[in-house]
């Protein structure tokens, strides 16, 4: 167990290091001169040189990389070449917004997938199971931004129950915050839920075939309690892995949904950064997203061990 923890932590650290090199290398080495980009094509060479000095772009790449990384480790994300504003506070602000979306979306996805997938598995030969199956197949085919547009058309345009877009921080107006959160979170959650449902279904189907479920029935447990007490935790093991991977999809999927609902999240910050050619900002946001995904997968790995005692044996 300890060994596994050490091993996983090592893998996480190496992954973080490698991805930081990748992100830095990709955005700092490949493109043209960020200073020239920031000032425009017509800027004088002197002005460009001045800006390069100002942002330390004239130093060796390794020095720049080390500086950037030490900055990140201290929570200093640097200053935008374009707006000359501190990047750190923007990211913290926007990250909270995206986190609300993703976490609510994930909760909705689980609330949809766990019961639907279980019913689909338990009744996989019956009409209700097949109908749910077909329904989830359609759900999988709908991209989140399309779901968002459809939800807006129904709940905002037709019924007028909820606002079509916008964002209010929870501290400012909790009621408005919730009303504006519902539709974007639903569009993320429903679509992800449809995908997740199919994994839950196959995990539960696998568990239903297990001998220990028959042992549980032979003890006198009725089918559903047997599945609940003995099947769920076992079925959760593969589903949790998928959840971890899905979080990456959700974080990035939020980018598109933020665009649909005009929400100032991390995704819109990234897209704005790209269209402004604000390369340091882009580099920072990408890094934050990648770190989030890697850390989540690390946590999922630990959760895995908590769920399955067989993995606790130190190998």
């Amino acid at each position: 167990m300890i060994l596994r923890l050490v091993e996983r932590t090592a893998v996480l650290l190496v992954s973080l290091a490698v991805s930081s090199v990748l992100v830095f290398g990709f955005l700092a080495v490949l493109p043209g001169d960020p200073a020239r980009v920031a000032l425009g094509v017509n800027a004088s060479d002197e002005a460009v040189a001045e800006l390069r000095r100002q942002f330390g772009l004239d130093r060796a790449l390794t020095t720049q990389y080390v500086d950037w990384l030490t900055g990140l480790l201290h929570g200093d994300f640097g200053t935008s070449y374009i707006s000359k504003a501190e990047i750190g506070p923007q990211i913290t602000d926007r990250f909270q917004v995206t986190l609300w979306l993703v976490v609510t979306g994930m909760v909705i996805a689980l609330l949809v997938a766990a019961p639907a997938g279980t019913v689909m598995a338990a009744r996989h030969r019956k009409l209700s199971g097949l109908a749910l199956s077909a329904f989830s197949q359609v759900g999988v085919a709908v991209p989140a931004f399309l779901a968002g547009i459809l939800l807006i058309m129904l709940f905002a345009v037709k019924l007028g129950w909820l606002p079509a877009n916008g964002w209010t921080p929870p501290a400012e107006d909790p009621g408005m915050f919730l009303r504006q959160l519902i539709l974007p979170a639903l569009s993320l959650g429903l679509v992800q839920g449809a995908v997740l449902t199919r994994y839950v279904r196959s995990a539960v189907l696998d568990v239903l075939r297990e001998d220990y479920l028959r042992t549980a029935r032979a003890k006198g447990l009725r089918p559903f309690p047997a599945l609940w007490r003995h099947g769920l935790r076992n079925a959760a093991v593969p589903v949790v892995t998928v959840l971890g991977l899905q979080l990456a999809t959700l974080l990035i999927g939020a980018v598109v949904v933020e665009r649909v609902f005009v929400i100032p999240g991390l995704g819109s910050l990234l897209l704005d950064g790209v269209s402004n050619r604000d390369l340091l900002l882009v580099q920072d946001v990408v890094m934050v997203l990648v770190v989030a995904v890697l850390v989540v997968n690390f946590l999922v790995d630990l959760l895995y061990v908590a769920l399955d005692p067989r993995l606790r044996v130190s190998r």
């Binding site: 297990e210 001998d211 220990y212 028959r214 042992t215 032979a218 003995h230 076992n234 005692p309």
Partner: peptide, 14 residues
């Protein structure tokens, strides 16, 4: 009832 295959008859997570 006692079943034939003991390796899989018990819940691995309990």
């Amino acid at each position: 009832m006692v079943f034939q295959e003991p390796m899989t008859a018990l819940n691995p997570t309990m």
